[in-house]
Write a protein that binds this DNA or RNA. Structure first.
Length: 489
RNA sequence: GCCCUCAUCGUCUAGGGGUCUAGGACACCAGGUUUUCAUCCUGGCGGCAGGGGUUCGAAUCCCCUUGAGGGUGCCA
């Protein structure tokens, strides 16, 4: 047995994983890896109505994409398994039994309707909804009676009379005190035979030897209940840290089944780079304190301290993510960006599957040119289109008028001639051509550039002319120049 | 309602009694580079929620108010 620290990421597979959950995974990963500890991936699937294998697969796939590798857990294995809660029922039952025997739990036969009634009444009287404890001291005869009536009991945790205040020590927030008077005899086993969240986490975290529990702020009020269970079972308490929430544009908690696409998969599909999302998520609720915000995984890991995490919620700012992702796209190896961009090009019907090998260098040249224009790779086709399709004018009549302008003919013919005079067209050589053109011809710069751009690309703006021309090559440029002149007639 | 938490530019944040006429990043605006767009560079706009204390001195400490968020489930 080592004294390695052990952390866990325990999502429930009840929806597609989004940045809120993933940021929690990220911080756990950071703390674990930084200190040479272990990260456990546990699947909390006790909500039978909503949990699906599909969502579980998505969680694993997206963690993998971001490089958040667990050391142990679902899909990996380990000595503290199984790691899916539905496969640990016998374990929960055993501890529930123990609680029942030691008097820390009791069976409750109240129906959902009765409980709802109780809640409604409490609300009407401006009281906090608390279970009234009606089943707390049922005799065996009474219990038999309920069972005979076909009622299936739940198990409730009996609040220990000796506990007055429960103090949660939090690595980020310091101490938080809860009076047991605001707690009630909460359910630990549902009538469907499943443990509740508050019960299962404690058993699992204790048995899996978790040393640090880092989770969202939305779990703060669960913590005192869990601490009571730890104590009742004689388990050692882990350290807790509650992260500030990631908020939507309305400053509300991100919803797992919400409408806004903050799902990790959507970022992947839109061509965000994992290291950009990683970097961005790390900066939600945490910062290095200095001015550089583009940080590698290693830098983040080296500088991350859980105690430095903020206490207040952070709004998810897509604009800033876009900026950061664009930075990463421009800084990345071209080959990688090309590989990642090709599917988008195929999807947009700009190239065929068959062409990608023969056209590879040409595509790479184009992608390299247009990457400066995009925030994410799904935007590549729109930018690359003009290089991969026939020319089309937004406004043919206006273009024709432009081509009919004074000196245009001269500019085009001189340009053509110079293009063929070079044995190679690169940004540099094309740049020289334009310099010569300006010097030799007595025309304004606008008369050179604007009609030329319009003739070649059909658009009024776009990538630099030197790139445009060197990408198209002399023949294609000449062809387009000629046909532009035809339009002017 | 009750419990808990939080509170610096529109957003993400630095700041932990004097060096703060509050620093950076995104966004926005302007200028430069590119005779275009974008990239890139420079500059600008913009904030300590309010009120009381404590102190020689408060963005920083305390209290109250206000606001926001979370919880209040046989969801996790």
């Amino acid at each position: 047995m080592s004294n390695k620290i052990r952390l866990r990421f325990p999502p429930s597979p009840t929806g597609k994983i989004h940045v809120g959950n993933m940021r929690t995974a990220l911080f756990n990963w950071l703390v674990a890896k930084k200190k040479g500890g272990e990260l456990v991936l546990r699947i909390e699937d006790t909500d039978q109505a909503r949990s699906t294998k599909e969502f579980e697969d998505i969680i694993i796939r997206e963690m993998d994409w971001l490089g958040l590798d667990a050391d142990e857990g679902v899909g990996i294995g380990g000595e503290y398994g199984p790691y899916r809660q539905t496969e640990r029922l016998d374990i929960y039952q055993k501890y529930a039994e123990q609680l029942l025997e030691s008097g820390y739990a009791y069976k409750c036969y109240c129906t959902q309707a009765e409980l709802e009634d109780m809640r409604a009444k409490a609300k009407a009287n401006d009281k906090m909804p608390r279970y009234d404890g009606s089943c707390r001291n049922l005799t065996e005869a009474e219990q038999k009676e309920f069972e005979a009536a076909g009622r299936t009991p739940v198990l409730r945790f009996k609040l220990p009379a000796e506990e007055k205040d429960v103090v949660v020590e939090d690595m980020i927030r310091g101490n938080m005190t809860f009076s047991t008077s605001v707690l009630d005899d909460f359910i630990i086993f549902k009538s469907d035979g499943m443990p509740t969240y508050n019960f299962a986490v404690v058993i699992d975290d204790a048995l899996m030897k978790i040393t640090h529990v880092i989770r969202g702020e939305d779990h703060i009020s669960n913590t005192p209940k869990q601490i009571l269970i730890y104590k009742a079972l004689g388990f050692e308490l882990p350290k807790f840290a509650h992260l500030p929430l990631i908020l939507d544009e309305n400053k509300a908690k991100l919803k797992k089944r919400g409408k806004d696409s903050v799902y990790i998969g959507e970022f992947r599909e839109q061509g965000y780079l994992p290291e950009a999302l990683f970097n961005f998520m790390a900066l939600l609720g945490w910062s290095t304190g200095d001015e550089e915000e583009i940080l590698s995984k290693d830098e983040i890991m080296a500088r991350f301290e859980i105690a430095d995490v903020n206490k207040s919620g952070a709004v998810f700012d897509r604009e800033k993510l876009n900026w950061m992702n664009g930075k990463y796209i421009r800084a990345a190896e071209l080959d990688r960006i090309v590989e990642l961009s090709i599917p988008f090009l195929i999807e947009a019907n700009l190239v065929s599957e068959a062409e990608i090998t023969s056209q590879h260098d040409h595509l790479a040249r184009i992608i390299d040119e247009v990457r400066t224009n995009v925030d994410y790779l799904a935007q590549i086709p729109a930018e690359a289109e003009l290089f991969l399709t026939e020319r089309s004018f937004d406004n043919p009549a206006e273009a024709a008028a432009e081509f009919a302008g004074e000196d245009v003919k001269l500019v085009f013919s001189t340009l053509k001639q110079k293009l063929y005079a070079k044995d190679q067209l690169t940004n540099e050589t094309v740049g020289e051509i334009f310099k010569e053109l300006k010097k030799e011809l007595d025309v304004g710069g606008r008369t050179i550039y604007h009609p030329t751009r319009l003739a070649i690309t059909g658009k009024g703006s776009g990538p630099e002319m030197t790139s445009v021309i060197s990408i198209f090559g002399a023949d294609e440029v000449a062809k387009r120049l000629d046909s532009a002149l035809e339009m002017a007639k």
